[in-house]
């Protein structure tokens, strides 16, 4: 937030999250290595390292890519989103270990510079099956690297949110590269179709989740509000909004979150000042509307972050007539105090 930067913004929840990540990774590596050693006694230490780190990184990448749409489909998954960037940096670390070991194993022992060797040892760019799949992995790793080194909020501010978001959208390209790296790499040496099925299942799951989440939002945005009185639009019955939660309404292409807090309704602009997170998908914690993405907080009655923070969002007027919620889509300047509407 606007106070001084720290290296890693740990709090109790994030610490629990990180311990869970660490525990999961450790268990996975242990299981992978022991199962491989039992099934294939001939396996070398280098191969074990290369395979265990790569499969773990691919698994984590799937989790990371699933978190976004899962949260948009069901708020139960929001705790996963809270610290997604730590998961991302963890994934990069394992991908880097895999890339590092592989470059060392396959390219560093010769007399050519390992990075030159990576690109010149296979130049079958016109072939599909013999395509230099290592280059695909290298470029995916490069994208993950750029994302990992810019994961601190400092970069969001100084590269501008637009550039930052665009850079981080490249994760989708990286995912495509990773899938093809696996398909044209290790799969070409494997006879067992189970690996293809796993990759395909992962891709189908992610595609389905993203398309579902996208179409759900499209429906929400297409809703027409027709009942209008003195600038107020009828949006929903008052009891539909749960306590400490919000419903989002899209009027004239602007999204507004109507929050219920201590038996009153308040309306604020849905977009968080930090990274554009959807405030209406969060909840009220300690009396503050808390963004589900990174926990930025705003007071419901005036849209201001509690001191020492300085972020402000627009507020709106809301009223209740006969148990029905009416919303005025004309925004007040950011941080303007509004009385809210009491639920009887």
């Amino acid at each position: 937030m606007s106070a001084s930067y720290v290296a890693v913004g740990w709090n109790r929840q994030k610490k629990i999250y990180d311990w869970l990540i660490a525990g999961f990774c450790f268990t996975y590596l242990l299981l992978f290595i022991s199962v491989t050693l039992i099934v294939n006694e001939q396996v070398t230490f280098e191969t074990l390292l290369i395979r265990s780190t790569s499969t773990l990184a691919v698994l984590l990448l799937h989790v990371i890519l699933a978190i976004g749409p899962l949260c948009r489909l069901d708020k139960k998954f929001l705790p996963l989103l809270y610290n997604r960037r730590h998961l991302g940096v963890t994934m990069f670390t394992f991908a880097l270990a895999h890339g590092g070991f592989s470059i060392f194993q396959f390219h560093a022992l010769g007399n050519t510079n390992p990075f030159v060797s990576l690109f010149i040892s296979n130049t079958n760019f016109n072939s599909f099956a013999a395509f230099p799949f290592q280059a695909l992995g290298f470029f995916a790793l490069l994208i993950f690297f750029l994302m990992a080194i810019t994961s601190h909020d400092f970069w969001l501010h100084n590269l501008s949110p637009r550039v930052w978001k665009t850079l981080h959208m490249f994760v989708y390209l990286a995912y495509l590269l990773v899938v093809m790296h696996v398909m044209l790499g290790v799969i070409q040496y494997e006879n067992n179709p189970v690996f293809v099925i796993i990759i395909l299942a992962g891709a189908v799951t992610l595609i389905t989740l993203h398309l579902l989440a996208g179409s759900k939002e499209r429906k929400l945005d297409k809703r027409k509000f027709s009942l209008e009185q003195e600038g107020f639009m009828y949006v929903c019955p008052a009891e539909e909004i749960e306590d400490s939660r919000a419903k989002i309404f899209c009027i004239d292409k602007e999204r507004i979150a109507v929050y219920r807090h201590e038996n009153k309704l308040y309306a604020i602009h849905n977009v968080c000042k930090h990274q554009g997170g959807p405030l209406g998908e969060g909840k009220i914690l300690d009396g503050c509307i808390t963004c589900p993405w990174h926990g930025y907080q705003y007071l419901p009655h005036n849209g201001q972050s509690p001191p020492p923070f300085k972020e402000k969002v627009s507020t709106y007027d809301v009223k209740i007539i006969d148990g029905k919620v009416w919303l005025n889509p004309v925004p007040f300047p950011e941080g303007t105090e509004r009385p809210g509407a009491t639920i009887k």
Partner: peptide
């Protein structure tokens, strides 16, 4: 936001500074 920030923060941004 970086005024009076910790050394940890300054170290953690070095890889990014090297690139950008």
């Amino acid at each position: 936001g970086a005024r009076g920030s910790s050394w940890g923060f300054r170290l953690i941004i070095i890889p990014g500074v090297t690139v950008f």
